[in-house]
Simulated assay, not measured.
Amino acid sequence: MPESPGITVLVVDDQPLAREGNALVLDSAPGIRVIGEAADGHEAIRMAADLEPDIILMDVRMPGMDGIQATRGIIDRGLRSRVIVLTTFDLDEYAFGALRAGASAFLVKTATHQELVGAVRVVAGGAAIVTPRITRQLIDAYTGRDRPVATDQPLSVLSPRERDVFEAIAAGLSNSEISATLHLSPATIKTHVNRIFAKLGLRDRVHAVIFAHQLGLPIGSATDPSTLT
């Protein structure tokens, strides 16, 4: 039986030292394998289609085609890869633009090696992360500052229990916290989460929280990567 490749990663950065450094950090982490490096957005889209990595670590500021355009191109092509964008500042409009384009997470370039590896593991597991202190700013920037209109209509496709789980996700609870709150097994919660995302057409938790905000539901803070289980 062939050995599992683990989490496969494509690293995208126009600066060779940064690209090679991040690739080295990730490739040395157990269960993670870097399968490609790209120097710009055009190359990132092409390699994403050819290699189908689990995760794409994407620099946002690149000449030619930046990370926002590349992320949109990857998502629009229906590729299964999840994108983590790297930015210089945690309130950078580039990062917000990348999330609008479909990225699952962003990290600042000052993140530690442990935070980088942790982010890859969390996003590969189906969760999504942002730097915790920017959650409110993220919601405002993502949705615009118009007051949301409360409506239950889009949630009518959910069962009552799925609605409970969705509201818990919006409140910022991890799967383990939802499990304890609703007195359901972690496996059952994971199944509910997957069904909710499928029914509502959501990619991950970040977009679920944003969707909840658009519906006028109470939302909580983003969760640290270590708690998104």
Rank of each mutant, 00 (worst) to 15 (best):
M62D: 12
E37V: 14
G97E: 08
L202S: 04
F197R: 07
H192I: 05
V12M: 06
A187G: 05
A187I: 03
E52M: 13
A180K: 13
A103Y: 01
L138V: 12
D204C: 05
F106N: 01
G126R: 07
P16K: 15
H42I: 12
I55K: 04
N175T: 12
P2N: 12
N194I: 13
L99C: 01
G64P: 06
S226E: 14
P218S: 09
Q214V: 02
M65I: 02
D76A: 13
A187K: 00
A119W: 14
L202Y: 04
A222F: 13
S81Y: 09
M47L: 12
P2R: 11
G64V: 10
G41W: 07
N22C: 11
A141V: 06
A23F: 07
S179V: 01
G172Q: 09
A49R: 11
A29L: 04
A101F: 15
L116V: 04
S176Q: 07
M1Y: 08
R72W: 11
V11K: 03
Q137D: 06
Q114W: 02
T181L: 11
I139R: 13
Y94S: 15
T88V: 15
S221A: 13
I219S: 10
L24H: 12
R203L: 01
R19Q: 02
L138D: 07
H113G: 10
F211R: 02
V130P: 03
P132R: 12
A212Y: 07
G97C: 06
V60G: 02
S185V: 00
G97W: 08
T131G: 03
L51C: 09
S174F: 00
D14N: 02
A44K: 08
G125F: 09
R19F: 05
E93A: 09
Q214C: 03
A124R: 02
A170D: 09
H192F: 07
V9I: 02
G6Y: 15
I45W: 08
F89C: 08
S4R: 06
T8S: 07
I196G: 00
S179P: 02
V206G: 05
S221I: 12
R121G: 12
T8L: 06
G118T: 14
P2K: 11
A170S: 05
S179Y: 00
R33I: 08
Q69S: 15
L200P: 00
D90Q: 10
M65N: 00
A124Y: 06
A18I: 14
V34A: 08
A141M: 07
A111M: 15
A38N: 06
L10Y: 04
V85G: 00
S176R: 03
G102S: 04
I7W: 14
A23P: 01
D164Q: 12
I68C: 05
V11L: 05
E162V: 04
L173R: 12
G64K: 10
P154C: 02
Q153S: 14
T131C: 06
D92E: 11
A39F: 07
I84V: 09
V25G: 10
T88I: 15
T181V: 12
I139Y: 09
D92P: 08
I45E: 03
L17G: 03
V165I: 09
T223R: 14
I55Q: 05
E167K: 11
A95G: 06
V149W: 01
G78M: 09
F106I: 01
V9K: 02
I45S: 05
I129L: 07
D140P: 10
T181N: 11
F166V: 00
I74D: 15
P132Q: 09
V157T: 00
F89W: 12
R46H: 14
S28N: 13
